[in-house]
């Protein structure tokens, strides 16, 4: 996720000089995270794509108003969340109208780390992906927002309308499960031995 200052810069240029280059840059850099986020609410990649595009249409149409936003990272996520909730309502999924009622369900369909760099075998990679995909859906969503989208705990709490304590606890659960399901160095017992000697 781009830092707030960078996003503010881009929004300013879009706002004051209708800079289409900045508009494209903002779209390209936010698109992967935002579609993933919208999908975790809508459970449909097509709808998520549409919601993110709708959000950027608003940004362009009302661009004059976008130079004043203090915390664009949270603002953008909350806008996409609200557009997603509207979309859910229009799909007549009765009852879902507040963040508390969202069935968060982020999907982890891609490898988001570098197995070669981590000396991971194919088995370790698939058992790791399995561990992540077997996390409870809300826990997986929090994990994804922090790991893939690079959001701070506080931002995740604000966006999902939960307490920071919940984010802390859910992140602990996620990492603990990941560790339990993957022993990174099980193929290198010598290395583990050397490392543990060094540390004791």
């Amino acid at each position: 996720m781009l830092p707030n200052d960078k996003i503010k810069n881009l929004l300013n240029r879009i706002s004051t000089s209708s800079c289409e280059k900045s508009y494209k840059e903002l779209f390209i850099s936010l698109h992967p995270s935002l579609t993933g986020f919208a999908e975790s609410i809508l459970h449909s990649p097509e709808d998520a794509e549409e919601v993110v595009s709708d959000f950027f249409i608003q940004v362009w149409i009302n661009r004059q108003q976008y130079s004043q936003i203090l915390n664009p990272r949270i603002y953008i996520y909350i806008s996409v969340k609200n557009l997603s909730l509207n979309k859910l309502k229009s799909r007549k999924r009765a009852g879902v109208s507040t963040a508390a009622e969202i069935e968060w369900n982020a999907r982890m369909n891609k490898i988001f780390f570098n197995p070669e760099e981590l000396l991971m075998s194919q088995e370790v990679v698939s058992s790791l992906m399995k561990a992540i995909n077997e996390l409870p859906p809300r826990c997986r969503t929090i994990f994804k927002l922090v790991k893939e989208n690079g959001l701070r705990y506080q931002e995740v709490a604000g966006i999902m309308e939960i307490s920071i304590k919940t984010v802390e606890a859910q992140m602990a659960i996620a990492l603990r499960r990941i560790k339990a399901n993957t022993e990174f160095l099980k193929e290198f017992p010598e290395l583990q031995y050397i490392l543990s000697q060094k540390n004791s």
């Binding site: 779209f27 390209i28 850099s29 570098n114």
Partner: peptide, 28 residues
């Protein structure tokens, strides 16, 4: 190890996501 895992990212997937975003931008 966990820390290393956390800080690792997949350049291949990043490139694929950027490519995908380019296409999405045209549709957008």
């Amino acid at each position: 190890n966990l820390e290393e895992f956390w800080n690792s990212s997949s350049p291949k997937e990043k490139a694929a996501a950027a490519q995908n975003a380019e296409e999405a931008f045209l549709n957008h």
